[in-house]
Design a protein around this nucleic acid. Structure first.
Lengths: 255, 255
DNA sequence: CCTGCCGCCTCACGTCGCGTGAGGGTCAAG
DNA sequence: CTTGACCCTCACGCGACGTGAGGCGGCAGG
């Protein structure tokens, strides 16, 4: 009991027999056993694995990589599920961006507006930056903040992301403004902006209390990718913003 | 001006030069012209076409089919955009189902629940029924109701779809109940149910006034796929529901 | 004017994830 | 004891490119 032939598995999982043969051939999914006649017999555990395989396949992973992921014994099953959920969120987000792009294109067409070639393709670029996401998972995968962030962002719709991006851009442009005006990082304006930033994160991603915010500030100068994000707006901005964040945290905690 | 080399196009569209060569080779996208030396020169129109190609490719269409779609001169550009938006909605919906499945799996894991093999894979089946969608587009593609439906459903989240499904199931089970109890199609109960159904559609898909509802009713018996949906609940239910819909419309319009 | 060097060209074979037979065993039912 | 459904193992084919190989075009620097 609870052992299935290729045909049965194929029917259940809606894949072809050939696919199962292939997975067996490349060692991605070998049945738990065989009958004396050489017939493949799949166990429940094999079905579980097949499900995982189909999942990652759906997301476009090459089979070899799927094997590596699944055979990495250092990753717990629940970590897999979280990872899958995260990947889905990304993929959905990407498609929603595409949908937004199509909507813009429809608008543009109605209005008779012409887009520049770069504009037309910008959504395809979209900096997949999967490596960055992976690293984030490695670094923070088991902090509460990370989990909270995953839980929230997984449910965000395209509209949500757009609103968040608008807010982020607004904060950044205010930052640039105040910084360019020559205000000190310890000035009221700078600290207020830092506070706005902290609340923005708390609202959309995870509870960003002052200690965490300090850590973020440090990272904005320590991690070149974050730094670049601010430095490209204005040289010295990363450092300045970090100082503003720390000043703001000090102010809040000295009350 | 506004003419690009392969390398430039590749950079803009984030594809490889080889891909552009390939598309040229199979006649999917041939550059508008060539230099005397044989260098490909892409025009703005070529970029537009490339964008469309990448779009359908992203959604998993084979290149041959993409060529057919794009070369079908009977389809207007705006129809393409609508179609793309619709396809994206489907794809997003599918992924959101997967996300929901993952969430369920996480729950099940926490609770230590075991799922049957069929349950584990059910989301992969999901009856892609693209053919049906295509046909719907052909038949209804330029009615207001269809456009409205597309506009709304494109924004639905997973949670929305689930709520809609719950409502639909509720209506159907009430239908079955009343029908099985032997009520006439012209009875108050039957007509009220028809009215509920009409409002359900109006709320979630498009303004379904009585004339349209009548048309729907007719289709529920005329189109075997719709009919099957009701007939599988109980033989004769499709016909009965159609009569109830018409009775309800008559009642409303006789006021 | 020659020399790099980069970008472009055209074959042409390799890869990945299977599809699609070919040729042949297995097994329960009639 | 045949029939038909299902299973097996090769093995070639295909779509959508990747990846050189070998060679031309065009321009900057010496």
């Amino acid at each position: 009991m609870s052992s299935y032939s290729v045909g049965e598995v194929a029917a259940i999982a809606k894949v072809t027999v050939r696919t199962l043969h292939h997975y067996d051939g490349i060692g991605l999914l070998s049945p738990g056993g065989r009958t004396p006649a050489g017939y493949r017999r799949y166990q429940d555990a094999d079905l579980d694995r097949l499900q995982q395989i189909l999942f990652y396949r759906e997301l476009g992973f090459p089979l070899e990589e799927i094997a590596a992921i699944l055979d990495d014994h250092s990753v717990s099953p629940s970590a897999h599920l979280r990872r899958q959920h995260q990947l889905l969120g990304e993929r959905i987000g990407h498609l929603q961006e595409l949908a937004a792009a199509v909507e813009r294109a429809m608008e543009a067409q109605k209005m008779g507006i012409q887009l520049t070639p770069e504009e037309k393709f910008e959504v395809f670029g979209a900096d997949y930056q999967e490596s960055w996401e992976e690293e984030a998972q490695e670094r923070w995968g088991d902090t509460d903040a990370w989990k909270q962030s995953q839980a929230r962002t997984g449910r965000y719709t395209k509209a949500d992301w757009e609103r968040i991006k608008v807010e982020t851009d607004a904060i950044n442009s205010r930052l640039l403004e105040v910084f360019s005006a020559g205000a000190a990082a310890g000035s009221g304006e700078a600290m207020d902006l830092a506070e706005t930033h902290r609340q923005h994160i708390s609202e959309h991603f995870y509870d960003c209390h002052f200690a965490i915010h300090r850590g973020l500030g440090e990272m904005y100068v320590a991690d070149p990718r974050f730094a670049a994000n601010y430095e490209k707006l204005a040289p010295g901005l990363a450092q300045w913003f970090r100082d503003a964040i720390i000043a703001n945290a000090d102010r809040a905690e000295s009350v």
